[in-house]
């Protein structure tokens, strides 16, 4: 068919305006399904009329919304009542039976009731359980989110340090006691600041703590205690050092005078 001529005929405008005859409507809808360009044209006409309608937008009295919503709610409950009435109308068709002591049905019903109550009790318990689990999971989720934020902040800080160009990175490598261990030391030679980051050390045993040492003039100098679970930590400042090392000490650490008492876990020269 010649869709262009059909579109030009003006029938689609009548259709969208709602003034087409029923027969015309059927034809238009059928053709619209068959020819995408006709459907497209209908949409464009609808949009033009929608825009025209929008030019008539008028501020609505504020109280009207509650009236409209109430009318809808009435409609919703009317429907509901109609259904109930239908049921009520159907019921009398069954002749009411006389209550005859404990009939078999009554016993069965009682048994079912007991079963049902027991079932409810069981399900209620499970539901409570599930609720608790959900609460636990939610709080865990929150914790993870918080940890994630901390991680992100430290990571950004570490990237900032690396990008500043002021820091020298010193990789401390695992010693025989922990070959897989690793720690990064960032040392700002301009202002002597020392940071530790990217800590990969074995889990700290109870009562113990890692301690950073700076090797100055061939001697280990206390550079500060490493808090558990830190990601990036500012340590004591050193204007000069030839190497850094981490040892495992009893909580509180050792002094410069006493030197490291525990095993050296990682070490790296500047």
């Amino acid at each position: 068919m010649n869709t262009e001529a059909y579109i030009a005929s003006g029938i689609l405008e009548s259709y969208v305006l709602g003034i087409a005859t029923e027969e015309e409507v059927l034809v238009v809808e059928k053709l619209a399904q068959e020819h995408p360009e006709i459907q497209q044209e209908i949409v464009l006409i609808q949009e033009a009329l929608e825009a025209y309608a929008l030019t008539h937008e008028t501020e609505v009295p504020t109280e009207l919304k509650s009236k409209v919503m109430a009318a809808i709610a009435r409609e919703a409950s009317d429907n509901h009542e109609e259904k109930i009435e239908e049921e009520a109308f159907v019921k009398p068709l069954y002749p009411p039976k006389k209550p005859a002591g404990m009939s078999l049905w009554a016993i069965a019903a009682s048994a079912l009731l007991v079963l049902s109550l027991a079932g409810n009790w069981l399900l209620f318990g499970r539901w409570k359980n599930t609720e608790e689990q959900v609460a636990v999971l939610e709080s865990k989720n929150l914790q993870v989110a918080q940890q994630n934020q901390v991680l992100k902040a430290s990571y950004q800080q570490e990237v900032g340090i690396l990008q500043s160009g002021l820091f020298q990175a010193v990789a401390l490598k695992g010693q025989p006691i922990a070959p897989e261990a690793k720690v990064m030391v960032y040392w700002n030679k301009q202002n002597s600041e020392v940071y530790v980051a990217s800590l990969q050390l074995p889990t700290v045993p109870a009562g113990k703590q890692y301690q950073l040492w700076a090797i100055v003039d061939g001697k280990p100098v206390d550079a500060g205690m490493i808090e558990n679970d830190t990601l990036l930590l500012k340590m004591k400042s050193f204007p000069k050092a030839s190497a850094f090392a981490v040892s495992l000490e009893t909580k509180g650490g050792s002094t410069t005078e006493a030197g490291p008492k525990g095993d050296i876990f990682v070490m790296g020269a500047v």
Binding site: A8, V16, L17, L44, E47, A48
Partner: peptide, 17 residues
Amino acid sequence: IKSAITHLRELFVGIAF
């Protein structure tokens, strides 16, 4: 009707979008 709506479309469709 046809030309009225054509005009409406010219005026509005871009903006209506």
